[in-house]
Design a binder for these strands. Structure first.
Length: 739
DNA sequence: AGCACGCCGACT
DNA sequence: GTCGGCGTGCTC
C-alpha cells in the first residue's frame, strides 16, 4: 500500500494516519537494516535513496526490502529526513548487494554504501541557463552587437559566456541585447560528461584468428542472457579489439557496458584506443576522480546517459540503469581484490552481477588466474583462445640460462651468456631490458665483523640499502635513515657488506662491463616522481638509452620499439616467498616482462637466469604455453585454492603480535571446523596493512564445503575467540556456487 | 564506520 | 589540579 492511499484512508475515516515504517540500510556494520518512519507526504519504495538521522548525524541510506523489526515501538522511530530525487536502486542491484554481503560476510549496509558513494550527486544536476535569440534588431546597432547577431540563429540556444566568447565581445553586450528583449532565457539540460560512443564509428579492426574469436563473443551477446567467457590470449594478440566488438554489439542493443580494469591500466592510452574505435571516450571511474566529475559520471550512469564506463573495481557497485555487459580486463590482476572494509574480488563479483542481471560477462587475460583457467577447463567459462600475436608484433624467443652451468663472475649476478647477448644487442643499435624485481642496492646489509643485520625498528623486516640516495630503507613501512658509516653494533668502520642484488647493484655491474653504454635505472622510488618517470620512459622509447634496468614498473604498458632483448636477472625470485600463489604470480609477472620485447616486429630474445630450469613455471614461460604451468603437478597448498578440489578463504586478523595471530589460529583449529588447514602468514605477506602502520597477520583457512565453511566463518566472526584486533573474512574462492 | 563517554599519564 | 590518550559501546 502506498503512502498516499494510507493517508487518504486516514483522512476519510478521521483516524490518525497509520505511520508507515520502512527498513533502511544505513552505512554501519550492523547485521541488518534499521527501521524508520516515513513522514506524511513523502513517497519511498524499496531502493529509494534517503537521508536519515543516525545518532547525532545525518547519513545516506537505502530503503530496503522485507519486514521491519516489530519489537520496536513505531511511535519512537525517527522519521526519514529526505528522499533524494534519483532513481531507486533496482531489485537486481538490491539482490546483488545482499548476495555480496552474504558471500563476503560483510554488513549489507557497508556494501550498499559502495553503490551510493557519490552523495552530492543524489540531487539532479541544476539546469544551466541558456539564451535563445527570439528575433528582432537592437535599438542601436554597434559593431559588437552586429558580431553577436552574426553568431545566433533562432534554433540553437547559447550560454551567455559562450556567446560572448564566440562573438569576441564582453558579456555586457549580451546583457544589453537581452534587456532589449532580443533573447529569452531557456533552461538547458547540463551537458553530458562524455559523448555517446558510436558502435559503427570505425570498422572493427580485427583480422585472422581475432575474427573467429570476436564472432563467438558477439554471438553470446546477441543470444542474450547470462554467459561467462574467458578470452585467453598472449600480449599483442588483439584481445582488446575482440572485446570491443562485444561492446559494439551491446551498444547496438542500447544497453550499458562496464569495462573493469586494474587501476593502473586506466591510462589515457586505453581511453584513446577506445575513442579511436567508438568516437568518444568512455566514462571513467576510479579513486582520484575530482568530486565534480565523479558526481556527473555517477548521475550519467544512473540515468543511462553514460553508456560505457571504464572503471577500477569500485565501479562494479555503480547502480547502472541498464547494464548489459561486463568486461574484466587483466582478470588475473590482484588489484581486483579489495582488502579493506568489505573484502571482495571484483572479478568474481562481476560474474555474480552478470548472473543476477542475466547478461554476459567476459574475463580477459594473457595469463589467466588459476581459478579462471580451471573454470574454463571445467566448461563453466566459455574459453576463447587467441594463440598468436598479430600484425608485425612477434613474440620473443625465450631461453633459460641455467646459472649452475653458466655462473656469473665472483661478486656479479649476470651470467656470461646474458652479458654476451647485451653486447650484441648494443652492437645492433638496439635496446636491452634487465628486469629485477628488487629496488635499491642490496636486499640485505650486514656487518662483516659482528654479523649485525640492519632491521626496521617498526616492523622487523630487513632494511634495504639505497646507494644512490645514501639511505637504508624499509620496503614494508617506508621507514628510512641515512646509511651509517660504522656498524651500530660493534662500531667497526667500512665493514658493511651488501648481500644479494638490487637494481642499483645490477646497474653498477652493467656499467663495469659496458662503460660506454647509456644505462637507465627505472624503479618506483626514482627521485623526481611521476614526471621524471614519464620523461625517462619517453627517452627510452626514442632510443636514448642502450640498457634499461628496471623493477616491476617497466612491465606495464609502454612500448619500446627498439627493445629486442629482455634479461630476467633472477627468474626464481618470488617462487618461494610463502604465498600459495607464488608460482602463479611469478608466471604472470615474467610473462608480462618478456612480452615487452618484439612489439614492432624486430626479432627479439628473452633470457631468463634461473637455478631451477626444470621448474614448471620456467617450462611454461619458455614454451609460451600457460597450460604447461596449469596442467602440472599441483602443490598441496595450491590444491586448496583450486575449485574442483577445495575452497580457500583467507581470514585477516589484525593483531599487534604474531603471538596473538597464532592464538587465534589455535582457537580455530580447536573449534573442529570444516577446514583442512590453517596457516599464519606474517606481516611481510600483508604489506598493505603494514603501510597503515598496523601489523596485520593473515590466516589462510582451507576447507571444502562452501555452506559449512560460510557458517563456520560467520560464527567465527560474530563469536570468535577473543584476541586483540579485528577479524575480517575474505572468501577467496571462485564464485562457481551460483553458476 | 563515526562519535561520545570514560578512565589513567604529562603538563599549563 | 586539567588536557588528552584510545578502549568500549551505541546508533532505528
Amino acid at each position: 500500500m502506498s503512502a498516499d492511499s494510507t493517508n487518504l484512508f486516514g483522512a476519510l475515516f478521521d483516524t490518525p494516519p497509520v505511520r508507515q515504517v520502512v527498513p533502511v540500510l544505513v552505512p554501519l556494520p550492523a547485521p541488518g537494516p534499521y527501521s524508520y518512519a516515513v513522514p506524511e507526504g513523502m513517497h519511498v519504495e524499496a531502493g529509494s535513496v534517503v537521508q536519515v538521522p543516525l545518532g547525532p548525524r545525518q547519513v545516506i541510506g537505502v530503503v530496503w526490502d522485507g519486514d521491519n523489526d516489530d519489537k520496536l515501538d513505531p511511535k519512537k522511530l525517527r522519521p526519514i529526513t529526505l528522499a533524494f530525487d534519483c532513481p531507486p536502486l533496482s531489485a537486481e542491484m538490491r539482490r546483488f548487494i545482499e548476495w555480496v554481503a552474504g558471500y563476503t560476510l560483510s554488513p549489507p549496509g557497508l556494501v550498499a554504501r559502495m553503490a551510493i558513494r557519490a552523495p552530492a550527486a543524489l540531487e539532479p544536476e541544476p539546469m544551466i541557463e541558456g539564451l535563445r535569440y527570439v528575433g528582432g534588431q537592437p535599438e542601436r546597432m554597434t559593431p559588437a552587437r552586429a558580431r553577436v547577431l552574426q553568431q545566433v540563429d533562432e534554433d540553437l540556444p547559447w550560454t551567455r559566456m559562450g556567446l560572448a566568447h564566440a562573438a569576441g565581445v564582453s558579456t555586457s553586450v549580451i546583457d544589453g541585447l537581452t534587456q532589449q528583449g532580443l533573447f529569452e532565457t531557456v533552461f538547458l539540460p547540463p551537458p553530458p560528461v562524455v559523448a555517446k560512443p558510436d558502435p559503427d564509428y570505425t570498422a572493427p579492426r580485427i583480422e585472422g584468428p581475432q575474427k573467429e574469436a570476436a564472432r563467438e563473443i558477439v554471438d553470446l551477446v546477441k543470444q542474450g542472457g547470462f554467459s561467462s567467457s574467458l578470452i585467453d590470449g598472449v600480449t599483442g594478440s588483439g584481445k582488446t579489439e575482440v572485446y570491443f566488438e562485444a561492446i559494439a554489439e551491446t551498444l547496438r542493443q542500447r544497453k550499458q557496458v562496464l569495462i573493469l580494469l586494474p587501476e593502473i591500466a586506466l591510462t589515457s592510452s586505453f581511453l584513446e584506443r577506445f575513442q579511436d574505435r567508438f568516437g568518444a571516450k568512455p566514462g571513467e571511474w576510479h579513486s582520484d576522480l575530482s568530486p565534480r566529475i565523479r558526481e556527473k559520471v555517477w548521475r550519467g550512469i544512473v540515468t543511462g546517459e553514460v553508456q560505457v564506463v571504464a572503471g577500477a573495481r569500485s565501479a562494479l557497485f555503480l547502480p547502472f540503469e541498464n547494464l548489459g555487459l561486463i568486461i574484466v580486463d587483466e582478470e588475473h590482476d590482484p588489484a581486483y581484490k579489495q582488502e579493506d572494509r568489505v573484502f571482495y574480488n571484483a572479478r568474481d563479483m562481476a560474474v555474480v552481477r552478470a548472473r543476477i542481471g542475466d547478461f554476459p560477462v567476459v574475463l580477459v587475460s594473457a595469463t589467466p588466474s588459476v581459478e579462471s583457467q580451471v573454470n574454463a577447463q571445467a566448461g563453466r567459462y566459455h574459453l576463447v583462445h587467441l594463440p598468436t600475436r598479430f600484425g608485425e608484433a612477434a613474440l620473443p624467443d625465450l631461453h633459460l640460462v641455467d646459472m649452475r652451468r653458466h655462473p656469473p663472475e665472483r661478486g656479479g649476478f649476470l651470467s656470461p651468456v646474458l652479458l654476451r647477448a647485451i653486447g650484441k644487442t648494443i652492437e645492433r643499435g638496439q635496446q636491452s631490458l634487465l628486469f629485477l624485481n628488487r629496488r635499491g642496492y642490496a636486499p640485505l646489509t650486514l656487518c662483516r665483523v659482528c654479523g649485525h643485520r640492519f632491521q626496521c625498528r617498526q616492523c622487523s623486516s630487513w632494511l634495504v640499502e639505497h646507494r644512490f640516495r645514501n639511505q637504508i630503507q624499509c620496503h614494508q613501512c617506508g621507514y628510512s635513515e641515512p646509511t651509517p658509516e660504522a656498524c651500530p653494533e660493534c662500531g667497526t668502520f667500512d665493514h658493511l657488506v651488501a648481500c644479494g642484488p638490487g637494481v642499483e647493484r645490477i646497474a653498477e655491474e652493467v656499467e663495469r662491463h659496458f662503460p660506454d653504454a647509456r644505462t637507465i635505472v627505472m624503479s618506483s622510488d626514482l627521485l623526481g616522481g611521476v614526471k621524471r618517470l614519464r620523461l625517462e620512459l619517453e627517452a627510452i622509447a626514442r632510443g636514448d638509452a642502450d640498457i634499461v634496468i628496471g623493477t616491476q614498473l617497466v612491465a606495464k604498458g609502454h612500448n619500446f620499439p627498439l627493445m629486442t632483448l629482455v634479461g630476467i636477472v633472477d627468474a626464481d625470485l618470488g617462487l618461494a616467498n610463502g604465498d600459495p600463489r607464488a608460482a602463479e604470480r611469478t608466471f604472470q609477472l615474467l610473462n608480462q616482462v618478456t612480452g615487452r620485447a618484439g612489439r614492432t616486429g624486430l626479432k627479439s630474445h628473452g633470457l631468463l637466469q634461473t637455478y631451477q630450469p626444470q621448474h614448471p613455471v620456467m617450462q611454461a614461460i619458455v614454451s609460451g604455453d600457460p597450460g604447461a604451468f596449469y596442467e602440472r603437478e599441483i602443490t598441496e597448498r595450491e590444491r586448496a585454492i583450486l575449485p574442483p578440489f577445495g575452497r580457500l578463504a583467507s581470514v585477516i586478523v589484525s593483531a599487534e603480535t604474531r603471538a596473538d595471530a597464532e592464538a587465534h589460529a589455535r582457537a580455530l583449529r580447536a573449534a573442529a571446523p570444516p577446514v583442512s588447514g590453517i596457516s599464519v602468514l606474517g606481516p611481510a605477506e600483508a604489506p598493505l596493512a603494514l603501510v597503515r602502520g598496523r601489523h596485520r597477520f593473515r590466516l589462510l583457512v582451507h576447507g571444502r564445503r562452501t555452506s559449512e565453511m560460510q557458517d563456520f566463518l560467520k560464527k567465527m566472526v560474530s563469536q570468535g575467540p577473543k584476541v586483540r584486533g579485528t577479524v575480517h573474512v575474505q572468501i577467496d574462492i571462485d564464485p562457481q556456487s551460483f553458476l
